[in-house]
């Protein structure tokens, strides 16, 4: 198992945001996490990438414990994160955004005397092509549309070349066409990387969930199964899909 999580818990001001008994991820697996608002999905990713400190529990990545390490150490270990709200560098060009992300030595002196190699430029262009960013290469990242920013952030994570990608709501704010393209891209990426995706858009989940789907509710793992199993599980319908249906019916 690439990622193993046991008895992880964190609370904010007395409220249990997350209380996860067990979670594990195979190498090169694409896992989708769904759950209603406040289920602790983003908190879970925040803990893995070092943004939030857990109260207790253990997380091992590649057999090594990562809980309590700094963001940089975790990133160096091979975990890349895409945030729910696209987080890019608005004052830099798309190319520079990608250049900073690319896997290389990242200490002060390497950066000061850095020279771009053709191989690196090629890699950046290849990733940019995959995410349809080639035409915007020298635009300021702050001037991109919301969907393009989402893709730019995915491209940033891809260029970091992490073993595990944590992707938080990649399809938020995208058109149907863009969403489908994002799905296809994630499926392709899952051939070479392990990916955890958080998503609300059920159509999108159906598209990418070839393997397991984990359902989180109020910080706890409700169930884990294939998309078909999850979709037909009465508990899931009750506390998540069911409620949406009920809302739809009342409309």
């Amino acid at each position: 198992m690439l990622l193993n999580v046991n008895n992880l818990s964190v609370s904010f001001g007395g409220v249990h945001a997350l209380n996860l008994d067990h979670f594990s991820l195979r190498d090169k697996e694409l896992r989708v996490i769904i759950g209603p608002n406040g289920a602790g999905k983003s908190t879970f990713l925040d803990i893995i990438c070092g943004k939030t400190k857990a109260d207790k529990g253990e997380i091992t990545f590649n057999g090594k414990p990562i809980l309590g390490k700094t963001e940089v150490k975790i990133a160096e270990a091979g975990i890349g994160r895409k945030f729910q709200k696209p987080s890019v560098f608005p004052g830099l060009t798309v190319y520079d955004n990608l250049l900073l992300a690319a896997k290389m030595k990242k200490d002060i002196f390497s950066s000061l005397f850095f020279k771009a190699t053709p191989a690196l430029a090629e890699r950046i262009h290849a990733v940019a092509t995959k995410l349809s960013l080639t035409t915007a290469m020298y635009k300021m990242a702050g001037d991109l549309s919301h969907g393009q920013k989402q893709w730019l952030e995915i491209a940033i994570v891809v260029l970091q070349d992490p073993t595990l990608m944590l992707i938080d709501e990649p399809a938020a704010g995208m058109s149907d066409e863009e969403t489908e393209k994002t799905g296809a891209l994630l499926l392709e990426l899952s051939k070479a990387h392990s990916i955890i995706v958080i998503e609300h858009d059920m159509k999108f989940v159906e598209q990418i969930a070839n393997e397991l789907v984990t359902v989180l509710v109020r910080g706890k793992r409700l169930m884990e199964g294939t998309f078909a199993e999850v979709k037909n599980d009465q508990r899931v319908i009750d506390c998540y899909l069911g409620r949406t249906n009920a809302q739809l019916e009342t409309l």
């Binding site: 943004k51 963001e71 940089v72 990133a75 890349g80 987080s87 560098f89 250049l99 990242k106 950066s111």
Partner: peptide, 26 residues
């Protein structure tokens, strides 16, 4: 230089640059 771009990246989004494995404090 790339160093200068990291500086601007720190200004724009400090968290993003540390998740890209740059030691912001340095």
């Amino acid at each position: 230089s790339k160093f200068g771009k990291v500086l601007q990246a720190i200004r724009d989004s400090e968290s993003r640059i540390s998740y890209a494995a740059y030691k912001v404090v340095d």
